[in-house]
Amino acid sequence: MQSILSHFHYTDPGILEQERSKIFRQLWLFACLSSTLAAPNAYASLSLAGQPVLIQNCNGEIRAFKNQCPHRLVPLQAEGFGQSPMRCPYHGWTFNNDGSVKSIPHESNLYNFSSEEREKLCMKRYAVEIVGNMIFINLSENPLPIEKQFTPEILDKLRDISTHFSAQTAHITVEVDYNWKLQYENVLDYNHVPYVHPQSFLPLLTKDNSSNLTKKKIEQPSIPFFPDVPSTLNAQSYHTRAALKIPPQPWHSMVDRYGEGGFFENFFLFPNVNFNCAEGMVFKIEQYEPLTPSRTAVRFTMAVAKEKQRIRALPAILSGCIRNDVNVLHEDRMYLERLQKGLHAGSPKVHHGQYERYLISFAQVYEKLLKGERPW
């Protein structure tokens, strides 16, 4: 069948603004791991739906704000991660844990705010849900219950698996020149793996871990055939599992593996997260933040399973893991950037095969949300 989406869903600036308004600013979005904010005044700052967001440890409670000082709109925290009180670096304003103004240097001489004006000088606050070790933020004034977006089964699974992460994590952001939906559709599509990743990812799905596969030797991996997927919001976030074998490394015996191992577990979290676990030892969260209709920031968060003993080489291990996943992204990138460049007013709609049920359902729910419908 043909997709209900057309070229302009991937190229039109007006569509991007609708996505931000009707999808990203209405749904729960993954922000960061709570383990990265364990220390007092620890923070994370990032862009969500085009909005600057600050997540801060406020006296042991995780809170989220718009990362803008109400005075001149300068970000309070400029780095991705750090540890400092909420203080504007531009004019020295400081803020309480609820986002209200705590102090303004030389306030009476320089500003002369009335009590009513001063009370309004408050940072905008956002709703927070912590699921295990994962922090989700909702930018809406009236956020929907997170259970409307994710099923209880998915939430329970996320709570369980995310508590197995090591305390130390690695982060990197890669910007690519194509629409965010192309990347999300790509990770929903298992069928491209033998053709795009024959040397990187495919060998891990084979019995012998052969590293010298050529395209002539490629065997089709087992592709799950999904039944019709309901076009409801919570049906878009789901879990899959496939056999996987990582070549053994010395550090594997030094971590507390999640589950029984031997599997690659994927969590597709609508609208823009692919979270996976390799053999219960390596965890990656990949998130797609739209920058323009044809440019996307891909954010990686990488962890290994909790250490049973100190691993001195853990920074190097995390660096190697994240480098491998970035390499896989670059393999996809070559094709997706070509695809994006070829989209134009005369581009035909794509054709979906039977196995692409989740891509079809994704498009249906996406379109409902753009129309302002409530598919839950």
Rank of each mutant, 00 (worst) to 15 (best):
F264D: 14
F264W: 15
F264H: 15
F264N: 14
E265G: 07
E265V: 06
N266M: 11
F268K: 14
F268M: 15
F268N: 14
L269R: 11
L269P: 13
P271D: 08
N272K: 09
N272A: 01
N272E: 10
N272Q: 13
V273K: 10
V273T: 14
V273M: 13
V273F: 06
V273R: 08
N274L: 12
N274R: 13
N274Y: 15
N274K: 10
N274F: 15
N276A: 10
N276G: 11
N276H: 15
N276I: 07
C277M: 14
A278F: 15
E279M: 12
E279Y: 09
G280M: 10
G280I: 09
M281A: 13
M281I: 15
V282F: 11
K284N: 14
I285M: 15
I285A: 14
I285C: 13
E286T: 12
E286R: 11
Q287M: 14
Q287G: 11
Q287R: 14
P290Q: 06
L291V: 13
R295A: 05
R295F: 05
R295E: 07
R295Y: 07
T296F: 01
A297M: 10
A297C: 07
V298N: 08
V298K: 02
V298G: 07
V298E: 05
R299L: 10
F300A: 05
F300T: 03
T301L: 11
T301F: 11
M302Y: 08
M302I: 02
A303H: 01
V304A: 00
A305K: 02
A305C: 02
A305D: 02
K306Q: 13
E307P: 00
E307G: 00
E307R: 01
K308T: 12
R310T: 05
R310I: 04
R310Y: 04
R310W: 04
I311C: 04
I311Y: 05
I311H: 02
I311L: 04
L314R: 06
L314V: 00
L314G: 00
P315V: 01
I317P: 06
L318R: 00
L318P: 00
G320E: 07
G320Q: 07
G320K: 09
I322D: 01
I322T: 02
I322Q: 07
I322N: 06
R323G: 08
D325C: 03
V326Q: 06
V326K: 03
V326I: 09
V326F: 01
V326H: 02
N327V: 00
N327G: 04
N327T: 03
H330D: 07
E331Q: 10
E331W: 02
D332M: 03
R333E: 11
R333A: 11
R333C: 09
Y335L: 09
L336D: 00
L336K: 00
E337H: 05
L339F: 07
L339H: 05
L339Y: 06
K341I: 00
G342K: 08
G342W: 13
G342R: 09
L343S: 04
H344V: 02
A345S: 09
A345E: 14
G346N: 09
G346R: 08
G346A: 04
S347Y: 08
S347Q: 03
S347R: 05
S347F: 07
